[in-house]
Design a protein around this nucleic acid. Structure first.
Length: 1036
RNA sequence: GGGCGAGUGGCGGAAUGGCAGACGCGAUAGACUCAAAAUCUAUUGAUCGCAAGAUCGUGGGGGUUCAAGUCCCCCCUCGCCCACCA
């Protein structure tokens, strides 16, 4: 799960102070540490018992991606913290689940393997062994009986199982949309895998490439992913990052009709004519908008002769680039046949309740089945059709249900499925037909209140209208070369160049195409500009330069009109309507009152949002920046997607596209072991070449079929692993629901959340870099499993902490490039695991980034040596403890407990240092006092404390002992110091007995010589007394 | 451009609005030692002063308060994340 990149050379490590500094009275860390690690493993003292009745706590680290570089000191920071926390919770009487595993599928392992010509399975195993050895060497208290590995078929069987459930719920689908393609890694990537338009792995600039992909519909969960954030005890920055990533914005979708006049040709259906159904109404409506309309009657309507019909149409109609052909039912078939005959393309084609096969419901004897030759020359039709819209009545009693999709497969275009006013779209009035006959540009805006100020439209270069424009150039477009030129330039520009260059706005006007502002009927120009993104909203915006800074800049550059429609209530004057550019120096984006907006002028802009949207028949909608999760990788080292493609099933049911999920009983679909797994670069996974693996009998029809050869992305296995730890060896299910309920169900006091019922891991710790990937993906899968009633709560991780970055001694990120990498193995060897652990905790606040400093490491080692020497001063039997030492002990218990609970490990360490310093002053140390001290230190330095504990004759491990109880009554204070301030400045202090009254203290203070000196000749106007602490004398 | 976080000795860092600098590192001096290391003891924010002590001091500027590192406003610097999202 880590982003650590694989190195090719051996890591150079930074120098740490030589071990010789340790000579003298120090403890033998190597001997002690290996000894106790062995004992703990043999006695299995960290194994978690599901059946225990103690309160449960699930403390989890983000499991590592086992890279070839080995464990990083940054990993250890997080792992040590959770280890201390787990040990503390155990000692305070909780049943703690604290497991570890390996997130081992993914690109880096595969790239590493390719480079070194070993199988990724082999190198991965080697890396895991090394990680495990290193982790064990620092004495972390994981329950190793629960170790999991995402590349193990017993594990990924359930990853595949979850995918199948997603598929069955319609949340996994095939897409052919252009996606991010990394030419170096030769695979598609999700949006989340990009950094600055570059591949997050290798830094190569990604391309947009259309290809077949599996995609997960995470967008269905956008709203829940957003709102449930409020209930999580997570760092605010991570929650904010997710809110940002989901990117909710509320606004309106509004249609801008095109201003150009068209010539509509309407063809009626079988046995019908231009006077029936919606034809007369549609003609009237279109003519009212200024278009010309020919509603034709076809000859021989009841026994159609296609040749005659085509001839009749061609005779009456002059087809040109402004023609829009509308065919209803059989008329749609005639329309296609006419398109076959045309020499030049028309503007667009609308097929209403159309068909292309004699697939008609309940009409076996339909005459056209026999007398018509159902063959079409599709490429010719496609070339001439212009834009295509296919309208299908969802309850059509005649036309077979698959015809809409079949036409789309042949012609492309938009398939609109709706419920007609009358069956088979035969109503006198069919608004959906009219709506799609009229050409318009749909835009999304968060500011419908500014609609009257929309002075032009801007389309993304990839917008459908522009694609159509290029394919079927209308003579009315006067600057086609300039448009083409701009599109080519945009294409060449990378994502980075598009966003860099100080965000200089570029664009080009479409000469000869105009739109109508639906609010005021003004005809406005249309521009193409790459600052509009195709995959957000509708890839088109209305530009309101007066109230949007980007539009402002663009309008200034292209000298477009700027029209003020909102103005500050305070500055509102009679002349507001003339303010515009000469006063405005930039867009006015604030709230205000509408001006220049017809009847809406005078309204507050908030109210106008709804009113204006309603006025232009727009809709209030919510949009999200979150995109669906591109889930295929064209690579070898990942979980195979459990899908079979069956050509035979396509024939039987074209709508199903021949996608057959692998039956659950056949899981796991094992990744085949092969010699060559290099990426092909063709957009196919290397698995495609493994013929005997790809070839498989279709589980539905039995014919030979092909396996899906794409694999899952690296983030699949980590999206549910925390569930598997709960029941890692379950053969029947991903985990026993009862155990899931026990460990993740809501209501555990340790989760300590105000809102109940979200459940989840009690404490989850890992790097902040997973804010928008792992942590969003896992929440998505968890919510999905929650909906399936498998997960017991709606959130996977109720509490999250991010460890800060551990930088090199030079303050730079640890990297072989700077030779500043600290190898934990060296530290463990020279200073011991306890020193390493304690040092990392002592470095600074847990969540802050900090530099490595070997001198400071030496400091904590000295502390441990001091504790070692203290043990020689311990009394044989319990002796009386001095009261001030006892008070200190109680304060230490309280502070260390609090600090561990709050992850303030640095101050916990310093508190223990203070205690040790005080113990050192004593001739002999009370046995019970020292034992309590060892317990407090045990979570932080488990080896040394275990050794000293056993030296005191204890037979049972200190880590199974009970945490000392804080007893405030034992804190005995006889006197305390009162600070005397004069005007807030400290001037004096003195000791007073406990119980001295306020009046007495004031009296004593005024008798002090220093105070007399400071206050002489001056009047004390006020005395502020803070009980037991301070007295402030305020002089007049 | 937006969001989040942070600015405190020579360094890492501590401080429920109540003695700024806990604890540790480093440094200086001393003890031990033939010597070194280790260990122990003392000192260690700056300035002035023989001293007692005084003044200044938590990025900068204002404010609230008897009292501000801490709360409020403005500004500067650094780090991280997101970024033409209409």
């Amino acid at each position: 799960m880590s982003k650590v990149k694989i190195s090719k050379t051996k890591i150079k490590t930074a120098k740490i102070s030589p071990a010789t500094k340790l000579a003298g009275q120090n403890y033998p860390h190597q001997k002690i540490e290996t000894k106790w690690q062995k004992v703990w493993a043999e006695k299995k003292i960290y194994q978690t018992n599901d059946k225990s009745s103690k309160p449960k706590a699930y403390v989890l680290d983000m499991f590592p991606y086992p890279s070839g570089e080995g464990l990083h000191v940054g990993h250890i920071l997080g792992y040590t913290a959770t280890d201390i926390y787990s040990r503390y919770l155990r000692m305070t009487g909780n049943n703690v689940l604290h497991p570890m595993g390996w997130d081992a599928f993914g690109l880096p392992a595969e790239n590493f393997a390719l480079k070194h010509k070993v199988n990724p399975a082999v190198s991965t195993k080697k890396n895991i062994d090394n990680f495990r050895r290193q982790i064990k060497s620092i004495g972390l208290s994981y329950d190793w009986s629960r170790e999991i590995n995402t590349t193990n078929p017993d594990y990924y069987r359930w990853t595949q199982w979850i995918f199948l459930q997603l598929y069955k719920q319609g949340l996994a689908y095939e897409s052919y949309e252009p996606i991010n393609w990394c030419p170096s890694c030769q695979t598609g990537l999700a949006n989340e895998d990009l950094e600055d338009g570059k591949c997050e792995r290798c830094g190569t600039v990604v391309e947009k490439k259309p290809m077949r992909q599996w995609v997960l519909k995470i967008t269905n969960y956008a709203e829940r992913l957003l709102t449930d954030l409020d209930q999580l005890k997570w760092p605010e920055s991570v929650k904010e990052a997710q809110r940002n990533w989901i990117g909710k914005s509320e606004g309106a979708e509004i249609d801008f009709p095109l201003a150009n006049k068209r010539h509509y040709v309407l063809l009626p259906g079988f046995a019908s004519n231009s006077k029936r159904s919606f034809f007369p109404w549609l003609k009237r409506e279109l003519e009212a908008k200024g278009h010309s309309v020919q509603a034709l009657d076809l000859p021989d309507a009841r026994i159609p002769n296609i040749a005659n019909q085509i001839e009749a149409v061609l005779k009456q109609v002059k087809f040109g680039p402004d023609t829009i052909l509308v065919g209803h039912s059989w008329g749609a078939v005639v329309a296609l046949k006419i398109l076959e005959k045309l020499k030049t393309p028309i503007a667009g084609t609308i097929l209403v309740a159309g068909l292309i096969e004699p697939a008609v419901k309940n009409r076996e004897s339909w005459p056209l089945r026999l007398i018509f030759n159902w063959r079409f020359t599709w490429p010719k039709i496609k070339k001439n059709a212009g834009w295509v819209k296919i309208l299908r009545d969802l309850k059509d009693p005649l036309i077979a249900d698959n015809q809409g999709l079949r036409i789309q497969q042949e012609l492309g275009g938009d398939l609109i499925e709706f419920e007609a006013e009358k069956a088979h779209v035969c109503g006198k009035v069919e608004p959906v037909v009219l709506e799609h006959c009229l050409e318009k540009i749909k835009i999304f805006t968060t500011r419908p209140d500014t609609l009257f100020g929309a002075t032009y439209l801007v389309l993304a270069p990839e917008h459908q209208i522009i694609q159509n424009l290029i394919r079927q150039p209308s003579k009315k477009i006067k600057n086609l070369p300039a448009i083409k030129n701009y599109l080519t330039k945009t294409k060449k520009r990378t994502e980075i160049e598009r966003t860099a260059e100080g965000r200089d706005k570029t664009g080009v006007k479409i000469e000869g195409l105009e739109a109508i502002n639906p609010a005021n009927g003004e005809i406005i120009p249309i521009y193409i500009a790459d600052y509009v993104l195709v995959d957000y909203g509708f890839g088109a915006i209305m530009a309101v330069p007066a109230h949007d800074q980007r539009d402002w800049v663009f309008a200034k550059k292209f000298k477009l009109p700027i029209k003020l429609v909102i103005w500050d209530r305070q500055k509102l004057t009679d002349k507001s309507s003339q303010i515009v550019e000469d006063v405005l120096e930039q867009a006015y984006v604030g709230e205000g009152i509408l001006v220049n907006s017809d009847n809406f002028s005078g309204l507050s802009n908030q109210k106008a949002k709804i009113a204006i949207t309603k006025f232009v028949r727009g809709h209030l909608v919510t949009k999200y920046k979150l995109r669906d999760w591109v889930f295929s990788r064209q690579r070898y080292w990942g979980e195979p997607i459990p899908i079979i493609h069956c050509a035979n099933c396509v024939l039987n049911n074209p709508v199903g596209r021949g996608i057959v999920p692998v039956p659950e009983k056949d899981l796991p679909v094992k990744l085949p072991v092969v010699k060559s797994y290099a990426p092909t670069g063709t957009g196919e996974s290397p698995l495609a070449d493994i013929t005997n693996w790809v070839r498989v009998k279709c589980p539905v029809c039995g014919a030979w079929a092909k396996r899906e050869t794409n694999t899952m992305p690296q983030w699949a296995g980590s999206s549910w692993y925390y569930l598997r730890f709960i029941d890692p060896t379950n053969k029947k299910f991903l985990a026993d629901p009862k155990k899931l309920q026990a460990w993740l169900g809501a209501g555990s006091p340790l989760r300590n959340l105000s809102q109940a019922n979200i459940g989840g891991v009690s404490m989850y710790v890992g790097g902040v870099e997973h804010a928008t990937r792992h942590l969003i993906y896992a929440r998505f899968w968890h919510k999905f499993l929650f909906d399936l009633k498998i997960a017991p709560g709606s959130e996977p991780f109720s509490q999250l902490k991010n460890q800060g970055l551990v930088l090199g001694p030079d303050g730079r990120k640890m990297s072989k490039r700077w030779s500043n990498v600290i190898n934990p193995d060296d530290v463990v060897r020279d200073y011991g695991a306890d020193s390493l652990r304690l040092y990392e905790m002592f470095m600074g606040p847990f969540e802050q980034s900090k530099n490595w400093n070997s001198d400071n490491l030496m400091g904590v080692r000295r502390f441990l040596d001091r504790v070692w020497r203290l043990s020689f001063k311990v009394s044989k039997t319990d002796i009386k403890i001095a009261s001030d030492l006892e008070s200190l002990q109680q304060k230490t218990i309280q502070k260390v407990s609090q600090d561990i609970e709050n992850f303030s490990f640095n101050t916990a360490v310093s508190t223990l240092m203070i205690m040790a310093n005080n113990l050192e002053l004593a001739e002999t140390i009370s046995r019970s006092l020292f034992k309590d001290f060892l317990k407090l230190l045990a979570p932080l330095a488990p080896h040394l404390t275990e050794e000293l504990w056993s030296n005191l004759g204890e037979k049972r491990s200190i880590h199974l002992a009970t945490w000392p109880i804080f007893e405030p009554s034992k804190i005995k204070i006889n006197s305390f110091k009162i600070i005397i301030q004069i005007n807030g400045k400290v001037r004096d202090s003195f000791q007073v007995e406990v119980g001295t009254s306020e009046a007495e203290i004031k009296k004593l203070a005024l008798l002090r010589p220093i105070i007399i000196q400071w206050t002489k000749d001056q009047k004390i106007s006020r005395m502020v007394y803070v009980p037991d602490k301070l007295l402030n004398l305020v002089l007049a």
